[in-house]
Design a protein around this nucleic acid. Structure first.
Lengths: 110, 110
DNA sequence: TCATGATGCAACCTCCTGGTTGCCTTTTAA
DNA sequence: TTAAAAGGCAACCAGGAGGTTGCATCATGA
């Protein structure tokens, strides 16, 4: 079983969602734990509300954020699990790298 | 200074590079510390050598990998710094989330 | 009940991305 | 010295991503 398949789901969609500065900014703002409406999130940006809405849906599909409709507004909230998943992948990569270095060092110092 | 600007460079390009399953697979294979030629990396994939070459250059531009020409082949090697940078961003996001939870808990338990 | 605020839906546009094919150049091993 | 291996370069193509505009819908406060 390869490193990529060894963990739960494929982290690529999560990274793809993180790979846009606008979305990264939205996620950063939401990571303070406060849920926000679309209008609120669109307020201090140059983009259209529709553009922000699309980005929020991308984040939601990646599991980085969760939406819930309350009354006339729909609020978005940060979802920490997906971030943990991305971190887990990066950790597995650096761990494999560190192990390779250790083995090389052991081989040289023998 | 916002959370996004507080660290060195913008992590978005790194995440964008990681956001493709083919590139993720290439990076995973290279994270064992062994440098590989383009032909070697193209061997057990369905894609064309040119497609793999493009992906490798995307990884290189994101700083995730480094190339060096030796003789008639150019070899690509894993570069751990960019991965560390991506992890640093994810850590800052989860830290902000954890802090928000702590403050909320303190407020409730008061 | 009615004007306003907050969204949703859909069409449309442009540009980038992931891939391919074809061809030329540089190395290398026999 | 020459054929095959390894790559680089460029053109080309289809589809998706990021954005916009226009209009319809639902909720709410006066």
């Amino acid at each position: 079983m390869s490193l990529l398949e060894s963990r739960g789901t494929d982290p690529a969609p999560i990274f793809a969602a993180l790979g846009d500065p606008t979305r990264l900014s939205l996620l950063t703002r939401l990571s303070d734990g406060q849920s926000r409406s679309i209008a609120s999130l669109s307020a201090d940006t140059q983009l259209t509300r529709q553009a922000v809405t699309k980005h929020l849906h991308v984040l939601e599909n990646a599991g980085l954020v969760k939406s819930s409709r309350t009354g006339r507004e729909s609020r978005f909230a940060f979802q920490p699990e997906a971030v943990a998943e991305a971190k887990a992948y990066l950790d597995s990569v650096s761990r494999q790298w560190d192990d390779a270095l250790s083995r090389l060092r052991a081989l040289v110092e023998r």
